[in-house]
Lab assay of single mutants.
Amino acid sequence: QVALSRTQVCGILREELFQGDAFHQSDTHIFIIMGASGDLAKKKIYPTIWWLFRDGLLPENTFIVGYARSRLTVADIRKQSEPFFKATPEEKLKLEDFFARNSYVAGQYDDAASYQRLNSHMNALHLGSQANRLFYLALPPTVYEAVTKNIHESCMSQIGWNRIIVEKPFGRDLQSSDRLSNHISSLFREDQIYRIDHYLGKEMVQNLMVLRFANRIFGPIWNRDNIACVILTFKEPFGTEGRGGYFDEFGIIRDVMQNHLLQMLCLVAMEKPASTNSDDVRDEKVKVLKCISEVQANNVVLGQYVGNPDGEGEATKGYLDDPTVPRGSTTATFAAVVLYVENERWDGVPFILRCGKALNERKAEVRLQFHDVAGDIFHQQCKRNELVIRVQPNEAVYTKMMTKKPGMFFNPEESELDLTYGNRYKNVKLPDAYERLILDVFCGSQMHFVRSDELREAWRIFTPLLHQIELEKPKPIPYIYGSRGPTEADELMKRVGFQYEGTYKWVNPHKL
């Protein structure tokens, strides 16, 4: 086992960053958080920038500027975001240094004079007029057009580079997404736009490419001749908990499936790229999406959770019991969808996408189930092999396979070949997804960000279904809070070829 401390991990990262040409360590950078008073800024962006600063992973002359409508001070920003920093008493001095680099400007999102004030403020910072500028839009999409237009007109660096990070949702359907994309691309070049999907920053999602293309053993079996089906799962054990009003506007397909799960599907299904260059990788992902037809209604199961009468606390409440959810809402909190990649490698292999709230566990994984062994000599005792990439929690890679049961006879039983990170790298604290992705933006690497043509294809696949749901308002199937979801989803999976045995229990190697 390799035991690495946080300091050692960050030392390795620093070495990698400083050796590259793309990370300008000594240049002045300004990180501007648009929507600095909001939840995302408070819980994710400010803490992430602090962790990067604490670990010495930001360029040395980096300033952080918050911008929002609320009249706040840096002290206010500190008060609301610091509880999420997880700072230790030993880091007190470092924390003071961090907040000394912070400033805040209040202004409207659609007022040109406010942006001119913001620009004057940035120019007044040390070497601010020639600094590289990175704008993070932690804002609702309704203000994107006004904000990007004003940034472009008043706040661009004339000497350094300018980059803009856009948070999902990128529209509600193909038409609104196209409108937003066309607007942003009329102001910024594609190499300046970073559409963030934080799932692409997760260690195991990034590991998929290495697993596939750096190991000879997987190449020959990664196709329709050997793989019976692919299941991509995202499960949350909690409901909307008072935030249903926002969720109800989008629903589970827009929230998770059309982005996170579809991105994971691309990494499983794509061909080997010409290189690890950002556009070479994204070219292959677009090719996969172009091979997927629009979702067919007979390959869809929609569910909505109801309270568990035997549960406790939140578990007793259904989705419609959330006071922020519109009365009688038919918005799905669970969806199972089957897609097919219609190309030579994957023809006929079902890709089953499942996601839901208020389920029995927290889990995100990719599961490849292989065909049955031909010419069975073990009297149907063999179960199908599976390769599982567990994204969260407890990152893991393992192969479910058959071995001989101890004893006199040739009785096979299920076991696993474990390729888990935790076994080799004991207690290594890896940077989280937002840390990686923000560092990628500083480096100018777009590999783990969504390109406009990729986004367009993703919406093309799901828009007809979303429009049909909005028009017909089908009643989702009720499922109990804390269950596996509607049984109809299991029946759909069985119908397209997935075999669920229920006889195997994964042993978490992190707890051995």
Rank of each mutant, 00 (worst) to 15 (best):
K287T: 06
D376T: 14
P431R: 04
A332M: 03
Y504T: 13
Q263S: 14
N299T: 08
F370P: 00
D347R: 13
C382H: 09
R367F: 04
N277A: 13
E470P: 04
W346P: 02
P476Y: 02
V325A: 06
V281A: 08
T503D: 14
N394E: 14
A374F: 12
V341Y: 01
G485C: 05
E457Q: 09
G375N: 13
A433D: 15
V349H: 01
K272E: 15
T420V: 06
S415W: 08
E344G: 10
P309L: 08
M493V: 10
F449V: 08
V397L: 09
Q380V: 09
T399Q: 09
V286H: 06
P464Y: 04
Q304C: 04
P431A: 04
F378S: 02
V337F: 14
D440E: 07
Q392T: 05
I469V: 14
S275Y: 04
K505V: 12
V366R: 01
D453W: 01
Y504W: 14
C443S: 14
W506V: 14
G407P: 05
E454F: 14
K404M: 15
V281H: 05
L465R: 02
L353I: 09
L353W: 01
E416M: 10
Q263G: 10
N394H: 14
M270P: 02
Q392I: 12
N423Q: 08
A374P: 09
G444T: 02
A297H: 09
Y434T: 15
E312W: 12
A332W: 01
L339D: 02
D321N: 13
G328P: 06
G311K: 11
K505Y: 03
V281R: 02
A458L: 07
I352V: 06
Y479M: 01
K426H: 12
T316Y: 13
A374I: 09
V441R: 00
P486T: 03
E416Y: 12
G485F: 01
Y479E: 00
V281G: 03
G307D: 05
A396H: 15
G318Q: 02
A489P: 01
V428N: 11
L439W: 07
L289V: 04
L417I: 13
Y504S: 15
R362K: 09
L439H: 06
L492D: 00
C291Q: 04
A274V: 07
K405G: 15
V391D: 14
Y340Q: 11
A297I: 13
L437N: 15
N411P: 15
H260V: 15
N385W: 13
K404Y: 15
R424A: 14
E342I: 05
A335E: 02
S483W: 02
K357F: 07
L265S: 02
M402V: 08
D440C: 04
G485W: 02
L261K: 01
G307L: 04
P350N: 01
H467C: 08
L368E: 01
Y425E: 15
W459N: 13
E501I: 07
G407A: 15
T276I: 05
P309E: 09
L419N: 03
G444L: 00
E314D: 10
D347L: 10
K429E: 13
E312A: 08
E361P: 01
Y434H: 08
D255V: 04
A274R: 10
S329C: 02
Y425K: 14
E491T: 09
H510P: 12
L466Q: 12
V256I: 15
K475G: 10
T333L: 01
G482T: 04
I377N: 03
K473P: 11
P474S: 13
Q296V: 12
D283T: 05
K317G: 14
Q392C: 10
L387E: 01
L439D: 01
R327G: 11
F370G: 00
K405F: 10
K272Y: 05
N423M: 06
P509F: 14
